[in-house]
Design a protein around this nucleic acid. Structure first.
Length: 876
RNA sequence: GCCGGGAUGGCGGAACUGGUAGACGCGCCGGACUUAAAAUCCGGUGGGGCUUAAAACCCCGUGCGGGUUCGACUCCCGCUCCCGGCACCA
């Protein structure tokens, strides 16, 4: 049989069995099965783009499919589901490009993806297939949003896992009396400040050239639009935000409960970026208006020579309201106004090497420690989203402040010196200060700081904080790099946000019994040219009635981001057709948490963190039973192009899975992607290497067919024990390798066995074992020969073979390397596991080769590790 | 700049918690089959030395420099380079 014919054979059987498995629902997971242990194996669901499955999907899904098939044969009740994350920008853009409704395009993409996954042999439970764009699915995405809106976070409230902090219904939020007195509107405003979903003005990118809103990922580093390379503008729109920061501490602490790689845990902790620091009030001279700054370096406060606020800071509004009282001249006012206007619009992501700019406001702030006045600047290097959006400028000890001070000729006052400098005395301190050419950012000992002089940075931080706290000028705060999650997108192809706005009553959620709010069809799906959502054009859909007063009201036209559907999808797999609830409680208890979550390293922070947040919220409101969703997480590697670089259209190094399945057959591709490298590694594709796997399968075919023939012709034929023992050693190796995700060495072990025994034949029992070992890797191939052996359908629901340890032990072959002074000089063969070093030494003495190294020398020491090695330390 | 990961033959990669470095595959070389090629099969293949050739033997070898150890790809200290992520985070 030529290789071409063999590939045809593979394609024939993959067609035949692939179809049958799906028809038979062979891989259906059983709810509530108590006889078998459950195993929820989750792999990130794909974003079905019009390009079709890519090689990365092909490899990670195959590896997880191998794992799944193994676990299933091992006797687990495995849940291995699949679905589609079908909302999102690429599909939307593509639909506009080909001038078709996104809905139709998405549907086709899904169909295409599903066929490809079936062809690949993915043993998914298709009865649980979900699609984030299905109204019956996004009804619950919307429902979660409403629950977030209807809840607030009480950091002190006890929760089920015994710790403190829990989401509670907004109705349970205590309203202060003075608010109550002001009436229902004030009460609602007060509640809005606590809701887990709330509205706030946030910047979005807008391209004046293309006249459309631009998503974050379409912004180029220089602040230009990816498509037209023209400069973008920042606009401020009211958007929905989710209060993830309320869960920040829990998201850090509960990492202890889960088995994630350390690097992933670290990444999450860094992403959250919890820091302790102080907020300090700097009052504007002769007013009672304070600018509150945030710092982690309170020890440097005596070095403050200016205060700077971000262009977006509320100080600016206060300033213009009070310019007259402050006695600011026209020219300064004009300068400040121009600077702020310009800066608020500007989009610039190239911060480095840029000269820091700012504008002096003409007002001074009073240092809370010295009472000295320092100038107040508006400067765009101060970011509004970081800290309080205002800083104390300490040029001597912060490089950015240093650069700013140099540009604007502000004084640079050294207040921290290294310990050894301090100890050398005044002269050394002065010399250090004079020779400063850039900020000294390390901690050290305080100088020129009144009574704190001589304290270490750490001591000073505490002492200064304590003193300022007493004067109500400072307090300790926890600060997170993580910010609340902007949850509005000005696009079309996403879940409608289930909120209604009424002039009289403000925002209200859509009543739950009216869900889902279905995304309306449009005549024209193009982006709106003012940067708002295209849904603005769905006039009929927008106009509705207020759930509170029944008067005329409008629907929210911003849709949810892509994350919305994908951060809880794995819960819906448990009960995908439930019309009453997001998930049946008992099913959730049976299946959760996810036992193993496989995904890409690129989702280590955002997706993993955000989905953990949503899950924790669902836990708080009693939808799911455990504090953490994923018991174990591992990141798979990428498939690189044949050139070793990341596959990309522009590089022209893309390998299409569909093409290689056509060329080599699905079993070959499966086995090759498992074999090509370690699970976590990024490995290049190679057609030549894939051919090596094809050769292996072809040889395996000949080997199996010869064995079958031999068995039929020789009734009662049995292999010798040695061969059987070797096969059992193979069982052990393959099992251990799959369990530790070393699919590459598992395949190598199978190859090695065939290399060693290709000229033998297997007896009936051993042949079954061999096919079973092959089954997870080459499922079509294994099924075909299983059926030819007339074994009951299917090999994939048969039992995984158990290695006979005694047999392995009995036929253990020990070759002990012999080292002289750490260098291997020979080896001796022993029977069984010899523990006594004298026995080995006697064998060595009989070996002339090794003895040559011992002539005229004295053995000083013998190190013997039974079963491993013997090392003789000798001397002249 | 910060955080994370990595560096092993011509290539992808093996090597358990420190115990024969290079499993397995690709490629390459030689041979068989063939009119020929492809495919397939058999043998060889880290570098160097010695040798007419082979066997045998010797030296070097896991990015670089040191250290610990009977023994180091593996552990420790100090570097270099590459890849990924984040980045004016106060």
């Amino acid at each position: 049989m030529s290789s071409v014919e063999f590939v045809d054979f593979l394609k024939e059987i993959q067609e035949k069995w692939g179809k049958k498995w799906v028809e038979d629902n062979l891989f259906k997971a059983e709810d509530f099965d108590t006889k078998r242990k459950k195993f929820y194996l989750l792999t990130e669901f794909p974003y079905p783009s019009h390009v079709g499955l890519h090689m990365g999907h092909c490899r990670s899904y195959t590896m997880m499919d191998i794992y799944t098939r193994y676990l299933r044969m091992k006797g687990y009740n495995v849940l291995f589901p699949m679905g589609w994350d079908a909302f999102g920008l690429p599909t939307y853009n593509y639909a506009i490009k080909v001038n078709r409704p996104p809905k139709e395009v998405a549907k086709e993409n899904v169909k295409n993806f599903k066929n490809q996954l079936i062809a690949l042999g993915g043993s998914f439970d298709w009865t649980r297939e979900i699609n984030t764009t299905d109204p019956e699915y996004y009804r619950w995405t919307q429902w979660i949003f409403i629950q977030l809106y209807n809840h607030w976070y009480d950091p002190e409230y006890p929760r089920e896992d015994g710790k403190k902090g829990k989401a509670r219904p907004i109705s349970e939020l205590e309203i202060p009396d003075d608010i109550k007195k002001k009436g229902p509107k004030a009460i609602k405003e007060y509640q809005d400040r606590f809701r887990l979903a709330y509205k706030a003005k946030m910047p979005v990118y807008y391209c004046p050239h293309c006249r459309i809103g631009v998503a974050d990922e379409e912004v180029e580093p220089g602040g230009t639009h990816e498509r037209c390379h023209q400069p973008l503008e920042k606009r401020y729109l009211e958007q929905w935000l989710l209060r993830i920061t309320a869960y920040a501490d829990r998201l850090i602490e509960d990492l202890e409960l889960v088995d994630f790689p350390d690097s992933v845990k670290r990444a999450q902790i860094n992403w959250i970026g919890r820091k302790y620091g102080a907020e300090v009030k700097f009052f504007i001279e002769n007013t009672d208006y304070p600018v509150t700054i945030f710092t982690t370096r309170l020890d440097t406060i005596y070095g403050v020579t200016f205060v700077a606020v971000s262009p977006e800071h509320s100080f600016v509004e206060w300033y213009f309201e009070n310019v007259n009282n402050l006695g600011i001249d026209e020219e300064t006012q004009k300068k400040v106004r121009e600077y702020v206007e310009e800066a608020r619009k500007k989009v610039d992501k190239t911060f480095e090497q840029k000269i820091k700019t700012g504008v002096f406001t003409g007002v001074y702030a009073v240092s809370p420690v010295t009472g000295e006045k320092v100038p107040v600047y508006v400067a765009d290097f101060v970011l509004d989203e970081v800290g309080t959006g205002a800083i104390m400028g300490v040029p001597a000890h912060d490089q950015r402040d240093y650069e700013f001070a140099t540009t604007y000729k502000l004084p640079i006052k050294v207040v921290i010196v290294p310990k050894d400098v301090y100890e050398k005395g005044q002269e050394a301190i002065e010399e250090f200060s004079l020779n400063l050419t850039k900020a000294y950012e390390k901690e050290g000992v305080l100088v020129q700081s009144d009574k704190y002089t001589g304290l270490s940075s750490n001591e000073a931080k505490k002492a200064i904080l304590e003193d300022l706290y007493k004067k109500r000028l400072a307090e300790q705060v926890k600060y997170y790099r993580l910010r609340d999650w902007v949850f509005s997108r000005q696009h079309y192809w996403g879940e409608p946000t289930p909120m209604i706005y009424c002039e009289k009553c403000g925002w209200n959620p859509v009543p739950e019994d009216e869900l889902p709010v279905i995304l309306p069809d449009l005549d024209d799906y193009k982006m709106a040219d003012d940067g708002t959502s295209p849904l603005q054009r769905a006039t009929e859909w927008i106009n509705t009635t207020c759930p509170e007063c029944g008067g005329p009201a409008r629907r929210e036209t911003d849709v949810m981001p892509n994350w919305a559907g994908s951060n809880w999808y794995y819960v819906r797999y448990l009960d995908p057709h439930n019309k009453e609830r997001l998930v049946d409680e008992k099913k959730a208890i049976y299946w959760l948490p996810v036992d193993f979550y496989d995904g890409g390293a690129e989702h280590t922070t955002m997706h993993l963190l955000y989905s953990r947040f949503i899950y924790k919220f669902l836990y708080d409101i009693g939808v799911v039973p455990t504090p953490e969703p994923y018991a174990k997480r591992r990141n798979h590697g990428l498939v690189l192009g044949p050139d070793g670089k990341k596959m990309s259209k522009s590089r022209g190094n893309v390998v299409n899975p569909w093409d290689v399945i056509e060329k080599f057959g699905a079993d070959t591709v499966r086995m090759y992607v498992a074999f090509m490298g370690p699970y976590e590694g990024n490995v290049p594709w190679s057609d030549e290497s894939a051919r090596g796997v094809l050769r292996f399968l072809e040889r395996a075919k000949a080997f199996i067919e010869r064995s079958i023939k031999h068995i039929q012709e020789n009734k009662g034929f049995k292999n010798n024990e040695m061969l059987t023992a070797r096969l059992h050693r193979l069982i052990k190796r393959v099992s251990e390798n799959i369990e530790s995700l070393k699919f590459n060495t598992a395949v190598a072990a199978l190859m090695e066995f065939l290399n060693n025994h290709e000229n033998d034949v297997l007896d009936g029992e051993n042949l079954e074992v061999f096919l079973k070992l092959l089954a997870p890797f080459a499922p079509f191939f294994a099924e075909e020969y299983w059926s030819r052996l007339s074994k009951p359908y299917s090999i994939h629901t048969s039992d995984w073979p158990v290695a006979d340890e005694k047999l392995i032990e009995a036929h253990a072959e020990f070759v002990i390397p012999v080292q002289i002074n750490g260098k291997v000089r020979g080896q001796v063969t022993v029977q069984g596991k010899v523990e006594d070093k004298e026995v080995i030494l006697q064998i060595i003495r009989k070996d002339p080769k090794i003895n040559r190294y011992l002539e005229g020398k004295k053995i000083q020491k013998v190190i013997f590790v039974p079963g491993k090695i013997i090392n003789l330390v000798v001397k002249e």
